Amino acid sequence: MTNELQIRKAELKDISEEAKEKRNQLNAEASKFAAERNELNNKTKELITVAQDLKVKRDEVNVNVSKYKTLRDETNAKANDLFAKADELRKEGGLAGPSIKEIRKQIDELEFKQQTSVMNPKKEKELVTKIKELELEYSEKKKQLEENSDLKAVLDEAQVIRDEASEYHAQLAVYASQAQEFHEQMIATFKEADKIRAESDVAHKNFIRAQEAADEQHKVFIEAQKEIRDIDKENGKAKKKDKDAKVKVDKEEQEKDAQDIFEKFKDGGKLTMEDLMALQRSKY
């Protein structure tokens, strides 16, 4: 092997070892990123399963929300029809104006104001007078209402139905709250899944980057090894050529020696055992 080829082979060995070391290091990094990616993907799947379960629960509760909303609205519509009928009966019986319920509400509000507000004597007197007027109107309306059995019956029925609607509304509020809670949990879980999926995408990109870099180093390693084998092959050919040439020279020399011995034999010369073996090895 020439000195130049020996130097090149040494360089290739260094390149090969360096590429092998980098390749192994990058493959280790790729494995680490792959494990991280797989773990994050599993977490994402688990969160999506949880979110889907929450969605099912929300939808199941929303069935009750729709049910009680329909019952409330239908019941309120019945109550409104009865209150409208009561208004017609009031007009027919000369009971137009605010209802007994509205008057009672005004009295309660004014009494609360009287108890909690600081007023001068004049204002307080005016307020007391107003309360007495409303109480008188309330008493008269109540008396008239009690005397009007048809109106009283309609108002009582309307109030029962309104109370029923209020119960439906209370149930609706409970289910709506549950549905909202499940919905918010579902949204939060889907967002968490999206966040972890994004982290998984980063880990996958890092895996691809490390894997491609490892493949590049492997190519460098393979190419260096191939060139080393080519140098060794060429060196082997050169050695064989030198050996064949040496064998040829040795053979030619043996043939020449055998010819000299044979000529010596023909001239009647005495041959030694070594001479005989030399002749045996030759064409003579």
Rank of each mutant, 00 (worst) to 15 (best):
M1Q: 01
N3G: 02
N3V: 06
E4F: 03
A10G: 08
E11N: 04
D14A: 14
D14Q: 08
A19L: 07
K22A: 01
K22L: 13
R23W: 07
N27A: 08
E29I: 00
A30Y: 06
S31V: 06
A35I: 10
R37G: 09
A51E: 11
Q52Y: 14
D53C: 00
D53V: 01
K55Q: 13
V56G: 10
K57L: 00
R58F: 05
R58Y: 02
D59Q: 09
E60H: 09
E60K: 07
E60F: 03
K67S: 07
D73H: 01
E74A: 09
N76T: 11
K78L: 14
N80P: 06
D81Q: 05
A86C: 11
D87T: 08
D87R: 10
D87Y: 05
G94T: 12
L95A: 03
A96E: 14
E102K: 13
Q106G: 01
I107N: 08
D108L: 01
E111I: 01
E111K: 09
F112M: 11
Q115C: 04
T116E: 08
S117R: 06
N120A: 00
K130E: 10
L134E: 02
L134W: 02
L136N: 11
E140Q: 15
E140R: 12
K141R: 15
K141W: 07
K142S: 06
K143F: 02
Q144M: 03
E147Y: 00
E147A: 14
K152V: 00
A153I: 02
V154H: 04
V154P: 04
E157D: 13
Q159Y: 11
A165Y: 10
S166A: 14
A170V: 01
A170M: 10
Q171F: 12
Q180E: 15
Q185R: 10
F190K: 09
D194R: 09
I196L: 02
E199C: 01
N206C: 00
R209Y: 07
R209P: 02
D215T: 10
Q217W: 05
V220E: 12
R229D: 12
I231Q: 00
K240D: 14
K240C: 00
K241H: 06
A245K: 12
V249M: 09
E252K: 11
E253D: 13
K256Y: 08
A258S: 14
D260I: 07
E263R: 06
K266C: 04
K270S: 10
M273I: 03
M273T: 08
E274M: 01
E274C: 03
L276S: 02
L279E: 07
L279K: 02
K283W: 09
